[in-house]
């Protein structure tokens, strides 16, 4: 990875992390109070982020043709199948239990919230289990 790309990714990530901390999404209590309909802040966070992203994802490929430091714009793989819904349902149960999702679990380390290391480890083990199951003959069938 070139120095310019390294810096591009690092700065982009830093904006993301600063935004997660500023919007208090790194606090599980705030996320859980959204899921209990006591504070609708998460809707503003997601709404604000989606608006900016939607605009740039739609306009950049048309206006630029190619990324400034890369050769093509990636497209997120997407297909509606059993896994996407079952996985989202399981994800939601975990999210409602701990109030931590992957971004805040990582960004939380920067805020010195060391208890979130437990959630981070859980996510890593859960991700490993998903890959491990997919590798077994029963899981590889689909």
């Amino acid at each position: 990875m070139s120095v310019s790309k390294f810096l591009a990714v690092l700065v982009s990530g830093a904006l993301f992390g600063f935004g997660l901390a500023l919007s208090s999404m790194v606090s599980p209590e705030v996320v859980l109070s959204f899921l209990r309909f006591r504070d609708f802040g998460l809707m503003l966070v997601m709404g604000g982020a989606v608006c900016v992203t939607l605009l740039v994802y739609q306009l950049a490929p048309r206006l630029l043709g190619r990324p400034l430091l890369g050769d093509h714009f990636s497209i997120r793989p997407s297909a509606l199948d059993r896994d996407i819904i079952l996985g989202a349902a399981i994800f939601g149960v975990g999210w409602g239990l701990c109030g931590v999702c992957p971004g805040p679990a990582i960004a939380g380390l920067g805020t010195g919230n060391w208890d979130l290391l437990v959630a981070l480890a859980g996510i890593a083990v859960g991700a490993y289990a998903q890959g491990w199951l997919r590798d077994t003959p029963a899981g590889a069938a689909d």
């Binding site: 982009s12 904006l15 997660l20 999404m25 503003l44 604000g48 992957p102």
Partner: peptide, 30 residues
């Protein structure tokens, strides 16, 4: 702070896309 933070998250994801063309969701890193 919710709106400002959300907009910044969007700017981070957008900057990654404009500069590198990569789509940056956070779960794949795991």
């Amino acid at each position: 702070h919710y709106l400002a933070g959300g907009l910044l998250i969007g700017v981070g994801v957008s900057l990654l896309f404009v500069l590198t063309g990569w789509v940056g969701g956070m779960s794949t890193v795991f």
